[in-house]
């Protein structure tokens, strides 16, 4: 129950992020989601795209270090306390969230979509599912 995320290593200097987005733009790759974590000298960009394998090889061919990671795409009710509810379930199941970020979904305004990187995907998915939270498959993400 997971989708693939691409992580890219970038130096933290002017122009680096743009070099990467240019590669993606030239290959006509549509970004579903993006998050950036940085230190003073480097950063890690995480990307959600439709064609994971194709995008990763495009980036590698352009000289970037890119890796793929399994993450969970979770449908979160777009109401106050919606995210809190999801985290409560994960906490209750003893899951550690390493990072998370919101991604775009423009079909339904009552739903938000979030990517979760956790220490145990299977356990987290089943905990969320049994509490009625929807986990998205890759095809569902693409259909958004």
């Amino acid at each position: 129950m997971s989708v693939k995320q691409i992580s890219v290593f970038l130096e933290n200097r002017p122009g680096c992020l743009h070099e990467m987005t240019k590669v993606l733009a030239d290959a006509k790759i549509d970004l579903r989601g993006l998050s950036l974590a940085e230190t003073s000298d480097f950063g890690i960009v995480r990307l959600i795209v439709d064609d994971v394998t194709g995008t990763a090889s495009t980036l590698r061919d352009a000289g970037f270090v890119a890796s793929m990671t399994d993450v969970m795409a979770v449908e979160v009710p777009n109401v106050p306390g919606g995210l809190n509810r999801v985290l409560e379930i994960l906490d209750g199941a003893g899951i550690n969230v390493e990072y998370m970020y919101a991604i775009l979904g423009n079909k339904k305004s009552d739903t938000a979509y979030m990517i979760f990187r956790v220490n145990d995907n299977a356990k987290a998915s089943s905990a969320l599912r049994s509490s009625g939270v929807k986990i998205m498959e890759a095809e569902e993400l693409s259909a958004l």
């Binding site: 480097f42 390493e98 990187r117």
Partner: peptide
């Protein structure tokens, strides 16, 4: 130089 083997999506581990 960063290599695919040494890279991960986790900033803490790279740090």
């Amino acid at each position: 130089e960063m290599t695919p083997e040494m890279f991960t999506d986790n900033l803490g581990i790279v740090n």
